[in-house]
């Protein structure tokens, strides 16, 4: 069975829990005392990941680090529908990769601000991190607005979400913990609600499920 080196409050670990939940893939969580124990920086854990970072998966001896890389691997291997990571569509693969890199930027900004406020990573320049997050959120909000105008629900074109949506979701949803409000990004907020209604969606601490969708009958009755 897949082993996930996991920490509940990590948005990067959550990306993998989300994909495996969407795909119905079973896995075992090996809990790491990220805080306050700093177990991911221990000598023992550096044998598994020399970078001393979460998450890591071990799938039958294949050990992979980096949330985005693991999303690519798991979707390629376990998504029989091929929709989360469509390997036969070069244009789409290019766009997915572009937004996976963008998600790393969200980690470097929105997640960094959250680590500063909640876990006392005092060496982080929190004002720069928040400003960086707002720059990225503005770009994504515009992108999603024009996607909606074109009848698209997700970050990349098509009628199905991709791993790009999964990679961007957690640290956007947790941004308020780092003092980055989503108030000014309405298209991002609508996309978050759509994301939460994907079948198989699961929460983490700090992320709540969507309320019930407004159904057609309620609208017509009103």
């Amino acid at each position: 069975m897949i082993k996930l080196y996991d920490y509940e409050l990590s948005g990067n670990c959550y990306k993998l829990r989300l994909l495996m939940s969407f795909l119905g893939v079973e896995y075992e969580s090996k809990l790491i005392d990220f805080y306050p124990g700093n177990q991911h920086k221990s000598e023992g854990f550096r044998q598994i990941n020399p970078l001393g970072q979460l998450p890591v998966v071990d799938d039958d001896g294949l050990v992979l680090r980096d949330a985005q890389a693991i999303l690519v691997y798991l979707a390629s291997k376990y998504d029989a529908s091929g929709k989360w990571y469509p390997r036969d569509n070069p244009a789409l693969l290019g766009q997915i990769s572009q937004w996976l890199a963008f998600a790393d930027g969200i980690t470097a900004t929105a997640s960094a601000a959250r680590l500063h406020d909640a876990l006392f990573y005092t060496q982080i320049d929190v004002d720069a991190a928040r400003a960086g997050a707002n720059t990225l959120f503005r770009i994504l909000d515009e992108h999603l607005y024009f996607a909606e105008e074109a009848g698209q629900d997700w970050i990349c074109p098509g009628d199905h979400p991709t791993i790009a949506d999964i990679a961007c979701f957690p640290y956007i949803m947790l941004s308020e913990e780092g003092g980055v409000s989503r108030m000014d990004y309405p298209a991002i907020r609508r996309w978050c609600d759509r994301f939460k209604r994907i079948p198989g969606f699961t929460v983490m601490s700090g992320v709540f499920p969507a309320g019930p969708a407004v159904s057609g009958s309620i609208v017509s009755a009103a």
Partner: peptide, 21 residues
């Protein structure tokens, strides 16, 4: 200790956004 600690962190992580709002 780690499981006990992480269980409590899971609970507190759920309270945190409520508190901050």
């Amino acid at each position: 200790d780690i499981s006990i600690r992480l269980f409590q962190q899971t609970i507190f992580g759920q309270d945190k956004p409520i508190l901050e709002n």
